[in-house]
């Protein structure tokens, strides 16, 4: 008996099981879709909370009260200085083991809010807030100090200056790194498998232990993460266009231009006539 036949008789797949792959890619099981759904809503809620908390931390860092500034900096130092994986285990398993706090399932109306989901969203949001705080800080620092001075000179209070003048300008700067953060957030949810949260990754693991189709099932998982981040990148680009200064907007290139590489400014015809080309060359 050859080695290959032994494997075949033991029920091991020889090579890549394409039918299995296509099946899970295009008609995933209900369990898998539940996992996918958890990945999506946990990412969205944790990111939203992370943005709000991050803004609060950034404000604390800019406060005129020293203890608040110190608190904000300590927060960022602690959270950014430790791995998310460690934070997750500490919050969910650690606190319970120490008898400090156990995340229990909550029932709101007809919905059950699992304890592990609460712990996951809380930890992801707290973790995200540290990074968002730095993004807010950088964006607010990037705005010309003359903007805040002009607002103050018009009699605006610091809160009004932030709301009316600084924040609308900061948001435009924040969207690209925020998009990055949300992309990372969706992928970070795979870490939730270690605290036993049935998101997409853990669901795939249980499918794997039942079928041993490791390569196929995790390739399906990779495709779904890629699909999520791809959809998000389109949403992000849409938001960026909406926020752009209408005076400086560049028209969205058409699909044909994207693939053919043509379009305004890059056209190969009429190069001599374009006054821009000569300037760019220098």
């Amino acid at each position: 008996m050859t080695h290959a036949t032994v494997l075949a008789e033991a029920g091991q797949p020889a090579g890549f099981d394409w039918p299995f792959f296509w099946h899970y890619l295009f008609s995933p099981s209900g369990v898998f879709l539940d996992g996918l759904w958890r990945t999506v809503y946990i990412s969205v809620i944790a990111q939203l909370l992370g943005v709000l908390l991050g803004f609060a931390v950034a404000l604390a860092q800019r406060s005129r009260f020293a203890p608040l500034r110190w608190g904000g900096r300590t927060y960022v130092w602690l959270i950014r200085g430790t791995p998310l994986l460690v934070q997750l285990v500490l919050v969910y398993n650690g606190l319970a083991a120490a008898g400090v706090y156990r995340f229990a399932d909550l029932q709101v109306g007809g919905l059950v809010f699992l304890g592990v989901v609460q712990a996951a969203i809380l930890t992801l949001a707290v973790n995200e807030a540290a990074y968002m705080a730095e993004i807010f800080r950088a964006a607010l620092d990037a705005i010309d100090p003359g903007q805040a001075e002009a607002a103050q000179a018009l009699g605006m209070t610091p809160a009004m200056t932030m709301r009316v003048v600084l924040l609308p300008q900061a948001i435009r700067i924040i969207v690209p790194p925020l998009g990055n953060e949300f992309n990372l957030m969706m992928k970070s949810t795979s870490l939730l498998s270690v605290i036993g949260l049935q998101e997409m990754f853990l669901t795939a693991q249980s499918i794997n232990s039942a079928t041993f189709k490791t390569f196929e099932i995790f390739l399906v998982v990779a495709c779904y993460y890629l699909a999520l981040t791809t959809v998000w990148s389109f949403v992000q680009r849409f938001i960026e266009r909406r926020l752009a200064d209408p005076g400086q907007v560049i028209a969205a290139p058409s699909l044909r231009e994207r693939f053919a590489g043509g379009g305004p400014g890059r056209s190969t015809t009429g190069r001599e006539d374009s006054p821009l080309v000569g300037k760019e060359a220098h």
């Binding site: 005129r64 002009a150 300008q169």
Partner: peptide, 24 residues
């Protein structure tokens, strides 16, 4: 306090060298 300062600045107009218009 900043709120009081803001209130007292209301009837003083200031024009800056670099305009400082709100670009948004």
């Amino acid at each position: 306090r900043p709120k009081v300062v803001a209130h007292r600045r209301r009837n003083i107009g200031f024009v800056f060298q670099r305009f400082n218009l709100f670009p948004h």
